[in-house]
Simulated assay, not measured.
Amino acid sequence: MSDLLREIDSLALFRGVRYAEPLNSLCDFLKKMEAGYTIDEMIESYGHFVSILYSLRTDADLSGAVWDALVADMNPYLKHRIDTLVDPENATKMSTLITLTAERELDLITQIASNTSYEFKEGMYYDGYLPDFTSSRIDFKARYMELIDNLATTGYGIYAKYLMFKIDGGKIKPVKHPDPIRTEELFCYERQREKVIANTRSFLMGKRAADALLYGDAGTGKSSTVKAVARMFEKDGLRLVELPKTEIMSLPDVIEMLTQVPMKFILFIDDVSFESTDDRIGSLKSVLEGAASGGRNNIVIYATSNRRHLIKESFADRSDEVHKSDTIAEQMSLSERFGLRVLFDKPNKQDYLTIVHKLCELRGIKIPEEELDLKAEQFAIRGGGRSARLARQFVDLIGG
């Protein structure tokens, strides 16, 4: 066990992994073994280490937990590769010595994480109960080098672990339980959805792509379309970052942060509308105008709104013809900065019932067609009119 402790403490390039869990708690336990602590103190320390491991991995896999820590670690080797991808012209050359160190330390981590509870119990000379854990014996060098070679698609840190994020207080925070909607669960609106998919595919291929405004009636699936399309291209390195309207003034800072990540992002602004005096209009306009200059090649902005014109007209704006003309031009100026504008209108009766039938089929709900249609129509009337959202709510209700 002394050799194991020395191996962990010798990590330099991946020092962050040494002080992350579960290795930090493991080191505390090993130091107590090394120092000849009493059996009671060692049992307590061992129990604490295994408790930490269980909290990190419900499969009790030491190797998996150490891998998670490694993926989250922003070490010099990873940072150099990121910098090279983001700004290849100004990237410095990586020393061969550091490359060799990375390979050697990854081999060491493989050895460290391959231990199971059996080895530790044997070293404690204790016949009583001690909790067990296992190891999937990951080849850290092979797996990490594969990750490094595919950063643009697999991601790293939080971008490897999560698909969707939200701006909160100017910081990028992961959404740990995102909307699970997929394109296969969206019905009707095929023409609208295909426009968004085609634009997103062009964006990922490095071709010409536009910022998009999805507008129209409430509950027609605009936000669901954006989230489902992001999930559709997750394995191609696409991530979604939602920007609340309250954070729009921080747009330039958010874009600066995302341009330093060698992945592709949908910057999503949901339910957009402004009063004519809102200062956020100028901030959004300037960012949309900047798209043409190529300053954010890895970011597209997708916004949704129930309004075609994102700036609301006040009563005073209608006071005279000249003012009215200026107001219309101002209202149009923001929405027209989106190169792709897609209308989602309320479904007719046939489309509404088609959505209901398809969702029931997807979930295995079997109700006679006439009865289903009658109940669905009654639900729509009580809900204020047909919409894709109401169709989904109705199916959720009858599905239990």
Rank of each mutant, 00 (worst) to 15 (best):
M1T: 12
S387H: 02
D139A: 02
Y37D: 13
N297A: 08
A72C: 09
I181K: 14
K346C: 04
G400F: 11
L258N: 07
D28T: 10
G237V: 01
S114T: 01
L151E: 11
L238Q: 02
T154I: 07
L163Q: 14
F233Y: 15
H357A: 13
V342G: 02
S293Y: 11
L108D: 15
N298Y: 09
H177F: 14
S250K: 14
Q393F: 08
E185I: 01
Q393E: 15
E369M: 01
V287G: 03
L85F: 01
Y126P: 14
I82R: 02
P88L: 01
L23Y: 09
M205V: 03
D149F: 01
D87R: 15
V66K: 00
R363V: 08
G294S: 07
K195H: 13
Y156H: 08
G123N: 04
S276M: 12
L97F: 12
T154N: 10
Y159N: 09
F165Y: 15
T153H: 11
A209P: 10
V196K: 04
S45K: 05
I248K: 01
D59W: 07
Y54A: 09
L214T: 11
E336C: 09
Y46K: 05
Y352I: 09
E146G: 11
I365D: 01
K346H: 06
V261S: 09
Y144H: 10
H48I: 09
R239G: 13
E275F: 11
T116C: 02
V50G: 03
M94D: 06
K166R: 15
A102C: 05
P178I: 08
S305W: 14
E119M: 13
L53D: 00
S10D: 13
L397N: 08
G36M: 05
Y19F: 03
K166T: 14
A291C: 07
M205Q: 09
T134I: 00
A65L: 00
L11F: 11
Y46C: 00
E313N: 08
